[in-house]
Design a protein around this nucleic acid. Structure first.
Lengths: 367, 367
DNA sequence: CACAAATGCGTGTTCGCACACAAATTTAAT
DNA sequence: ATTAAATTTGTGTGCGAACACGCATTTGTG
């Protein structure tokens, strides 16, 4: 005497399909996996019944017997050059952990972000290994395209994160809406400065030419004031700074501040807000408010002492996690994945910072 | 010729343990599940080997053959009385969806939040059904205690969300740190009002006596100013309002505003900020800024038109989701779950609102 | 028309675990 | 010592899908 589970009638197995289609389970299996060796009409019949019965394969059973392994490759900058990248790395590892029960393995390829050659080298290495899926942050545009082409030809799905490249459509893009984050920054800047003043948009250490997202952030910031008919009230400047030489960095700021009337707000579009904060501290300037990006340690220091008012969190750990997640969804679970996945724009202050930090046991959640 | 999976050597099965302990798999199984009927010495031997080999049961295989079903009960207010509760409901349903592959079923018991009797009735009903786990928002303190006692006696784990009751320790509490959210609100209020002024804390439609979290929010708000030595600069008032009578609500506000010098900021500790927004709109007052809680439709309306500056998101959908999640972690996967789980304090403005709304296709994630 | 190759399809085994049942062993009772 | 009872341990089967294997039938080739 068998016990039947209560939802027996609602659960459709391969066997049920086989029965209804008057074929063997082997045939149904062949249809499902496109293994060929099935007559066209039989195939269609089975397919139709699968749809009718709304068959959903039992993941447990599928994984159980299967020895299939999934090898993903993750290509992103070495965090020793930029602390930002520790977070994606940890997200990737968390996802690997979560999916290891499904035989998912992730190989990390980290490169020196200041060295195009290294980028190409690591990408080449990765490509040679023929992974089942690729997650990457394609910080070099031109150099990446040939790889996209190759992967497309090899039918290897790839997911982009943090930096978007629209050509050769990827399986998915994970990241932030830079334009929107510019709008958000402007809203905060406006909120904190009810009275007319000057504001500065500072791009530090990244060439605008190579970084479309910086442009978008600036556009967003400026458009907020335009859209709200505030551009007569606030004067918005912008500047590109580099930290290559400490003294020139300081000198540039000195002249900027000297020549700008009533500068009250600086919006740093990169994760280097702490550099400005440090400068302001050294110069004992405390009437200029700062908004920046990314919860990296030096930024947190100045967030906590009040030099930085807000940081916009790019959810870097989430980016890594979701990247692997999407690949798994697509390859392991054969689900459709959204072509674009924007992560929330988190406004972080000293008061809610804790919840965005990477506590071992803290959890991501999204709805 | 069998293909061995690459990690074969690292994966420990019951069979391996049995082999090493020189017993049958049945015995190992009995040890693992404490089914008794195993000689003491054998049991210890097996237990030791399990630990040595670091055995981790294969979830797939476990679920596959098992007909075990998990029935959870979820007790929370009917959303037709307060739109806030649509979100937890949808989170609960999302979680049910996610865990249904593990034979998890959730039965919802919704009650009229204004009717203690209904609360008790639904709780009694639920208790009679003897679910495997319970998720509830215990909005009535005194009335809940006997149930806690009963569930403890019956050994049914329960998870609290949104409202915390510390007695009879629950498996887990999911919610927000109200005090911290008060601090956050104060930070925002301060940021938007650099100059001295008066601020009002408004508790609408909930009796403070019954709602510890409102007290905490107020404490947080006040303490921000105290901690930053700002209490000489800003004057903080508070008021309890009820909407039972439209006219008295308005009248109270009228007198408040008339008698308060330089009132520039109102902090609404409940989800009824829209009521104040509406009032301010009717009175054509636009120099008073509003901060409130919860992304419910009427609030969103005023967030979008600028009457409300910020909403603090309590992540209600996440609360529901995580509640069920914790129960499943505990009961299905036998994992330890954190006793307290604070969800992030999201600062929501018109500019980042989109990312916090309940897109059909958006996903949960956790790290 | 014979015979091989290709194609179509069914059978049987496997995955790791749970659980029912059978078997073996020990203990108690006479 | 014999047998019954209680306790301990072993065996077998099912869960649903994947896939290797192989038999049967069709198609192709000379």
């Amino acid at each position: 005497m068998k016990k039947e589970r209560s939802q027996k009638n609602t659960i459709v197995r391969i066997k049920d399909i086989a029965l209804k289609a008057a074929v063997s389970t082997g045939t149904v299996d062949r249809v499902i996996h496109n293994r060929g060796r099935v007559a066209e009409d039989v195939k269609n019949r089975v397919l139709k019944i699968i749809k009718e019965l709304n068959y959903e394969p039992n993941l447990m059973a599928r994984m159980l017997g299967s020895k299939k392994e999934y090898h993903f490759a993750a290509l992103f900058p070495d965090h020793s050059y930029d602390a930002f990248w520790t977070a994606p790395k940890s997200g990737i590892e968390k996802a690997e952990q979560d999916f290891k029960q499904y035989n998912v393995f992730v190989e990390q390829y980290v490169f020196n972000p200041q060295d195009v050659k290294d980028y190409i080298k690591k990408a080449t290495e990765l490509t040679r290994k023929k992974p089942d899926g690729i997650l990457l942050s394609p910080i070099y545009y031109k150099e990446t395209l040939p790889f996209f082409e190759k992967w497309n030809a090899d039918n290897i799905p790839f997911v982009l994160f943090n930096t978007q490249i629209a050509d050769f459509d990827p399986l998915s893009y994970i990241g932030q809406d830079s334009y929107q984050s510019g709008l958000l920054a402007a809203k905060l800047a406006h909120y904190g400065n009810p009275d007319a003043c000057s504001m500065l948009i500072a791009h530090i250490d990244e060439k605008i030419s190579n970084a479309q997202h910086l442009v978008k952030k600036e556009q967003g910031f400026r458009n907020y004031f335009a859209q709200n008919n505030l551009d007569h009230k606030y004067k918005i400047l912008n500047v590109e700074l580099t930290r290559s030489s400490q003294s020139s960095f300081i000198k540039s700021l000195d002249t900027l501040i000297e020549n700008t009337f009533d500068l009250k707000q600086i919006f740093v579009t990169t994760s280097q807000a702490y550099d400005i904060a440090k400068y302001l501290e050294q110069r004992h300037i405390n009437h200029i408010k700062l908004i920046g990006y990314d919860l990296i340690p030096p930024n947190l220091h100045y967030l906590n002492n009040g030099a930085i008012s807000f940081l916009i969190n790019q959810n870097p750990k989430g980016q890594g996690y979701w990247g692997i997640y999407q690949l798994a969804e697509h390859l392991v679970f054969k689900k459709e994945v959204p072509i674009i996945k924007y992560l929330p724009l988190d406004v972080v202050t000293k008061e809610n910072l804790n919840y965005f930090l990477d506590e071992k046991d803290q959890v991501f959640i999204e709805i």
